[in-house]
């Protein structure tokens, strides 16, 4: 079944390289306005994640099934090589961030740009923390999301359904398969067989 957990907004810190990339600056550049953006985001963020553990079926070559239909993906098949099970999870910073960005887009492009970049970096940080909590002591493959490589974005819909992400986290999909809240991430993370691990 599906478990839901929260991450307090104050516990989220952007990874410096990630933030610099989002801001289109360099690691050591201090950007005025980031602190203000972080304070505003801290109030707006309601960060939660949910996950399940699913067996991996391989009905055909380069085709995977986690219990909600088969998907062709060479890249994910390669990523999950040697795994019999995977964690499926979704993380979101919540709708408050979208509200904030909508407002900033009207008020100040500079603040909007900085806040948007920071929020994206924080979503990655949230995903890292969720990942760490979900896997615990287990050894896992790097996480993989719909839209990476050849994994179809269409997978987003059944994956979110399986995670009951709408009811549990408030994540919805637009007709173009984009998630709202926009600062949301879904991922698949293969679990190594324990005997291989040792």
């Amino acid at each position: 079944m599906i478990s839901v957990q929260e991450i307090p907004a104050a516990k989220l810190q952007p990874e410096p390289g990630e933030l610099a990339a989002r801001l289109q600056t360099k690691r050591d550049v201090t950007v005025a306005g980031v602190q203000e953006a972080q304070a505003a985001l801290e109030k707006a963020i309601c960060c939660r994640f949910c996950w399940i553990k699913a067996p991996i079926l391989r009905p055909a070559e380069n085709t995977l099934d986690f219990g909600f239909g088969a998907f062709f993906s060479k890249d994910l098949t390669k990523n999950l090589d040697g795994c019999a099970e995977a964690f499926l999870f979704a993380v979101t910073l919540g709708l408050g961030v979208d509200r904030l960005l909508l407002r900033l887009a009207q008020v100040s492009q500079a603040r909007h740009f900085i806040t948007d970049a920071l929020a994206s970096a924080l979503a990655e940080a949230a995903c890292d923390q969720a990942e760490a909590r979900i896997k615990g002591a287990l050894s896992c493959k790097p996480r993989f999301s719909p839209g990476y490589g050849d994994l179809p974005l269409e997978m987003q819909k059944p994956l979110l359904n399986r995670l009951e992400a709408r009811q549990r986290l408030g994540i919805t999909l637009t007709q173009n398969l984009l998630m709202v809240p926009t600062k949301s991430i879904t991922a698949i993370m293969g679990i190594y067989h324990e005997n291989r691990h040792s």
Binding site: T25, A32, Q109, A117
Partner: peptide, 11 residues
């Protein structure tokens, strides 16, 4: 200079 600075100057 970087994009955030350029934007702040523009504002």
């Amino acid at each position: 200079a970087y994009l955030p600075q350029l934007l702040m100057s523009a504002e």
